[in-house]
């Protein structure tokens, strides 16, 4: 009788193990195929549009008249580029300087303060950044533009870029701190023992060693910035026009998707066009992501 129960118990255990294993395997498969499903799904939906019009015209034409069936994505692509590049120009130097500060110069209390600050900044939702942008950054940019001879509503490329740069700071900064920390201490010791000062050591040795990592962190920042939606959408103005300056409104790709989902099904090919912009986002972001990560892996191997 006891043997019987033990046997049952063993069988039960085995079945449980079997079940776990197969569930694990299913989850595993899901992750393996998900990126491809994502890509192909978007490609499939945007195929209608791509077959209808040439890819070059779609990407580089400025004619955006969905009702007439004209879909030129150039204004949106240019806006996205403006906002992304500008935000990296703001965020990059700030993050790099701060990362050096936090890894090499900061006192203990600064570190203690900055850890939660970075964490919380990373956790704040996009929409909150948007609200903050409307409250503070929009009036600020409006006044700044006026004083520089570019009167504007405050809802501009620059506003979007400022909000965006603050949003991606925690993301880029965390990677940078990690990258700079992994530079072996022995390298600094070697440089110091040759009579270099701390700053010379950082400038010529630490940053040089960390250079691939720094570039990848910026690349990852760009990919993050390029796809950011709600916060940018709330402050960037959303006017379909190729922007020619930072004090003009823009209309980045993610905002295009988010703003028009309502009408997407009522205009022919509009849904396909929006899926096409999602596809552009997906492809660009993934390329930047892969490139940056490959650079990190490659430079690690080289060492």
């Amino acid at each position: 009788m006891r043997d019987f129960f033990i046997k049952i118990f063993r069988i039960g255990r085995k079945i449980k193990d079997q079940f776990h294993s197969s569930w694990m395997f299913i989850c595993f498969l899901l992750i393996l195929v998900l990126p491809f499903i994502l890509g192909f799904g978007l490609l499939y939906k945007s195929n209608v549009l791509i077959r209808e019009q040439s890819l070059l015209q779609l990407l580089f034409s400025g004619n955006w008249h969905p009702l007439k069936g004209e879909f030129g994505f150039w204004p949106f692509i240019v806006s996205s580029l403006w906002v992304t590049i500008l935000s990296m120009l703001i965020c990059g130097p700030v993050c790099l300087l701060s990362a050096i500060h936090l890894t090499h110069y900061a006192k203990k209390w600064v570190l203690k303060l900055m850890h939660p600050v970075i964490d919380i900044l990373a956790g704040i939702p996009s929409v909150i950044y948007g609200v903050w942008g409307i409250l503070l950054v929009v009036p600020f940019v409006s006044r700044m533009g006026a004083s520089m001879g570019h009167p504007n509503s405050g809802y501009t490329i620059l506003t979007g870029a400022i909000v965006l740069s603050i949003m991606i700071i925690p993301f880029v900064l965390n990677i940078l701190i990690e990258v700079i920390r992994t530079v072996p201490r022995e390298l600094s010791e070697a440089s110091l023992s040759l009579g270099a000062t701390k700053w010379e050591t950082i400038k010529y040795v630490v940053l040089k060693k960390a250079f691939p990592g720094i570039i990848s962190s910026f690349g990852l920042g760009i990919s993050r910035a390029f796809g950011e939606t709600i916060a940018v959408l709330m402050v960037v103005g959303n006017v379909v026009k190729i922007p020619t300056g930072v004090f003009q409104p823009g209309y980045p790709l993610p905002a295009l998707i988010a703003n028009n989902y309502g009408e997407m099904l009522s205009i022919p090919m509009y849904d396909s066009a929006l899926m096409f912009s999602a596809l552009i986002l997906f492809v660009v972001v993934t390329i930047f992501n892969m490139g940056s990560r490959y650079l990190i892996i490659y430079s690690e191997k080289k060492i």
Binding site: P35, L42, G227, A258, A278, T286, N289
Partner: peptide, 17 residues
């Protein structure tokens, strides 16, 4: 690597998908 790529995909793309 795939997970990191997925992590990087903007949420609006997930939404559209």
């Amino acid at each position: 690597f795939l997970l990191d790529l997925l992590w990087g995909v903007p949420s609006i793309v997930y939404g559209a998908f």
